Amino acid sequence: MSEFLQNCGSWGVFATLAAYALGVLINRKTRLAIFNPLLMGSIFMIVFLRCFAIPYADYSASAAPVNWLLAPATVSLAIPLYEKWDLLEKNVGAILAAILAGVITSLGSVLVMAHVLKMAHANAVTLLPKSVTTAIGMDIAATLGGTAALAGAVIILTGIAGSLLAETVCKVCHITHPIAKGLALGTSAHAVGTSKALEMGEVEGAISGLAIAVAGVLTAVLAPVAANFLP
């Protein structure tokens, strides 16, 4: 198998797409939120790599084109925001305040957890950007002395958790305003949460896309400050 894969330079791309497609199929058949396509696809790839004893470095190099699409995919979220630009102009103050509150809460939760669990500094800074998109969060973690790969995994898990719990949290907390839903998902669950926000509605998706960008910038600025208070 290893020899075959070495002769097929793009096997990582095809394997990734196949794993995700299988996850989508299972999600549609079961109609259960827990079978999130991204989560299922990740599990399938882990099992595949383990079964055939394929080093992660080999898979990462082969699947690099998929990573290259991450930034353009994130930027494309600006399209629904442009279509709802009037909402942004009318609510800009409340929107920015909500995103700032979300970023501070995210960083603060890591600070509390790090002190309670007595985490090593390198592990704690890896968790600081858990709620921003992978393209930004991995760079933040690496810059602060954390592990970029681990940060990526934590960010993905955070997004999946936010997507799965979104509707339940909104019902329990009586969050009904579309702008509030979009802000909550974009600030706490980045791109994965935004995909869920788009399912809820156009306004939710547009505002969530804005929250991703603003939360990413604020986290990049505030994370180094928060790192000074870590153990």
Rank of each mutant, 00 (worst) to 15 (best):
A114F: 03
T147W: 06
H177E: 15
G108K: 09
S60E: 14
G23Y: 00
S76T: 12
M138N: 04
A122Y: 01
A223T: 11
D58E: 13
G146K: 00
D139F: 08
S106H: 02
Y59L: 02
A213N: 02
T187W: 02
T147V: 14
V203P: 00
W11C: 08
V154K: 04
L38Q: 01
G182F: 06
T187P: 00
G152P: 05
A21S: 15
P224W: 09
A98P: 01
I140Y: 08
T194P: 03
A122D: 15
I26S: 00
L165T: 15
L38E: 01
V154N: 04
S188A: 15
C170D: 05
A153E: 07
I46N: 03
F35P: 01
P231Y: 08
T30R: 06
S163W: 03
V125P: 09
N67A: 11
R31Y: 00
A223D: 06
N91K: 12
A78K: 07
S42E: 02
L81R: 06
I175M: 12
L32N: 07
L77V: 09
A184K: 01
A18L: 11
T134D: 01
M119I: 07
G216I: 02
G209Y: 05
A149C: 03
L117W: 08
L38G: 01
V66C: 08
F14A: 11
P231F: 06
G137C: 04
G9I: 09
N36W: 00
I140F: 04
H174C: 12
N67D: 10
V66D: 05
M200L: 15
L185A: 02
N36Q: 12
L22H: 03
A97V: 13
L70C: 13
V13I: 14
V169Q: 05
L111Y: 06
I140L: 08
S195F: 00
A18Y: 00
G186W: 03
A161W: 03
S208P: 07
K90T: 15
L198F: 08
M200N: 08
V172R: 13
W85V: 13
H177F: 09
C51L: 15
L183S: 06
K181T: 09
V217H: 11
G162N: 01
V75Y: 10
A97L: 14
L25T: 11
H121P: 06
Y56T: 09
V112T: 14
A142F: 08
A141L: 04
I99P: 03
F229C: 11
A184E: 05
E199P: 10
F48I: 12
A184T: 04
A211W: 02
V66I: 15
P72M: 11
M1P: 09
A142D: 13
I212H: 04
A53I: 06
M138F: 03
N228Y: 09
H174F: 03
A180C: 10
G23L: 03
A97W: 07
A57D: 15
K90C: 10
A94K: 12
V217D: 11
V116E: 04
Y56Q: 07
T74I: 14
L88E: 07
G216D: 00
I99H: 01
